[in-house]
């Protein structure tokens, strides 16, 4: 006997049609439904990335070109003023965006890759191997980052941004690895991992294809935080004079500003813009991070409702709201039902 939903009773699940979940294609269409944080953060980050891409092409002056207007306040000719040698701050900012972001994202990418390999393996392999990896992670966690970097850059030949990026990634992976190890320890006991083992899957396949896809949210979040760390560390190193001050980056601007008493002479247009850019980039990444948390864990939002609707629903002291909407049809139907 066929049912209107297809299938016949006797086969499993006759009459069953679970609606398909939203595929990834639809994710982009509903961007307005995303939390405010994600939209703001993405917008801000997109702005800076755009700056990094087109910066050198739209910079009005050569950032290193010395000019006659020295320590000039922002004006029509120099939108962000000039340095003590007449260099245009805006141009420096635009050109420097590229290096700063490249080093930041590049170092973070490498660090994240290392943290994934070490962290998940440390969590999955229970025996000596796992313990060793865990110990390695802990060692790198304890070592203070900045002093280590100071020592390394002092000894390494040259101090190009590539070296700095490598050094940063060599030290920033440990935190992410620890988090991933903890998560993997929990996931390892999950039934679907046991089922993969029972099916005969090899260890590395389980790590890459069973465990890692379930930890992508953490990996992504860890990556974003590592970008912030990398940018700040890079800027910090350059500011201290240990990085590459020959290339223009936001840190370099700060270095020169500091060296030439910009704070003392009140040339706020020199050090505020690069500092603000670094801070805003960090903020953008943090906003995306928190926003993505809400996206992935809908219970952090108010159960999928819009902000206005959820406020309307909460009543006194958390009692279940009562909203009787008795329509005429309903009363009539109940009348005949008796």
């Amino acid at each position: 006997m066929a049912t209107p939903y297809g299938g016949t009773p006797g086969t499993a699940d006759a009459g069953e049609l679970t609606p398909a979940a939203t595929r990834s294609v639809h994710l982009w269409r509903h961007w307005r439904r995303y939390p405010v944080k994600v939209i703001t953060g993405c917008g801000l980050l997109a702005f800076f990335v755009l700056l990094a891409i087109i910066g050198p092409f739209v910079a009005p002056y050569d950032p290193s070109a010395i000019g006659p207007d020295v320590l000039a306040a922002p004006s029509a000719a120099h939108l962000l003023g000039t340095t003590n040698t007449g260099q245009d701050v805006l141009s420096q900012l635009l050109v420097g965006a590229r290096v700063t972001l490249l080093v930041g994202f590049g170092a973070a990418a490498v660090a994240t890759a290392v943290s994934v390999i070490v962290g998940i393996s440390a969590g999955y392999y229970a025996g000596v191997g796992g313990e060793l990896l865990s110990m390695l992670t802990n060692i790198f966690l304890i070592i203070p980052l900045l002093p280590l970097l100071v020592v390394l850059t002092a000894f390494l030949p040259g101090a190009g941004s590539l070296i700095v990026a490598v050094v940063i990634s060599a030290t920033a992976w440990a935190w992410g690895a620890r988090v991933l190890r903890a998560q993997t320890l929990a996931l390892r006991k999950a039934d679907f991992v046991q089922a993969a083992r029972a099916a005969g899957e090899r260890g590395w396949r389980i790590i890459l294809f069973e465990i890692l896809p379930n930890e992508l949210a953490i990996v992504f979040s860890s990556f974003l935080f590592t970008v912030i760390t990398a940018i700040l560390t890079d800027a910090g190193l350059i500011f201290l004079g240990l990085g590459d001050t020959s290339q223009w980056s936001w840190g370099a601007i700060l270095f020169w500003a500091q060296n030439n008493e910009a704070l003392g002479t009140g040339a706020w247009w020199w050090f505020v813009p690069p500092g603000l850019c670094i801070a805003l980039t960090g903020t953008a990444l943090a906003l995306i991070n928190f926003g993505v948390d809400e996206l992935i864990n809908p219970s952090l939002r108010t159960a999928g409702l819009g902000r206005k609707a959820s406020r309307a629903m909460t009543t006194e002291q958390g009692l279940t709201p009562v909203r009787r909407a008795e329509s005429a049809e309903l009363t009539a139907a109940r009348g005949t039902g008796r």
């Binding site: 679907f192 896809p213 379930n214």
Partner: peptide, 26 residues
């Protein structure tokens, strides 16, 4: 082996085809 919890024994990121194809291939 078949496990007790139907909500935990399938990997949420893979579809039915993957779950069945893996043992076939292995």
């Amino acid at each position: 082996i078949v496990f007790q919890d139907p909500f935990a024994s399938l990997n949420p990121v893979h579809d039915v085809h993957y779950h069945l194809a893996r043992p076939l291939r292995i």
